[in-house]
Design a protein around this nucleic acid. Sequence first.
DNA 1: ATGTCACCTGGTAGGTGA
Length: 255
Amino acid sequence: MKLATWNVNSLAVRLPQLLAWLATEQPDVLVLQETKLTDDKFPQAELAAAGWHSAWFGQRTYNGVALLSRTPAEGVVKNIPGFDDEQARVIAGTVHGVRVVGAYFPNGQAPDSDKFAYKMRWLEALREWLRAELTQHPRLVLMGDFNIAPEDRDVYDPVALAGTIHCTDVEREHFRQLLALGLVDAYRLFDQPPRLWSWWDYRNLAFRKNQGLRIDHVLVSQALRDGTTACRIDKAPRKNERPSDHAPVVLELTP
DNA sequence: ATGTCACCTGGTAGGTGA
């Protein structure tokens, strides 16, 4: 079983690239972030024509998530139950007995901002929901754009970026608290190329200079850990014309 | 030299968020 996550930074712009990537990669499940589409604009027909079932949850201009799959997802949940949120950031569903949670974590902007305070509240709500979700669904994958670089080795210049957004101690502590639920960072279960990131800023020629961060993650529950056979970042779509600033992350599980 | 992109409002540019 192959699962993947990709922040497409506008599905309206990236749909052709998405269809091409799906045709090549043939995942069983893909979660998307930053679709930036209201639900009436979601390209359900185009995806269905290519053989994909979709569940989606969006809003105007910002955020927006989706869950694509070869077979329909069951038990779809939108956003974090019990956490009142104007922003469309979470979609969950069950495919082939695996509970898939796709999430677009808040960016947080700057450590002293209101948006950062929201990020902290959101992270706490996510954690407490997942704690309950794991008791119901031991076979669970949490994946998406976390907007957190968990360790210094996930950052192109940890000295220059120390304490800045994505790299603060409190964000990293939240990441560790997600792991403490019994989740594992699948990327680190395997040898990986050095200095490979999942996001490169559009600005400052960051991709050409390989100045990026690893902020897109796939976390697997203990029950899935032994069946996890691969996890990789697919840098290729970042080289496309008009690319998303994020690369997809792919997970492979034994059936 | 934040060497950008996407989307919005109200425009033939400027603001916001990432």
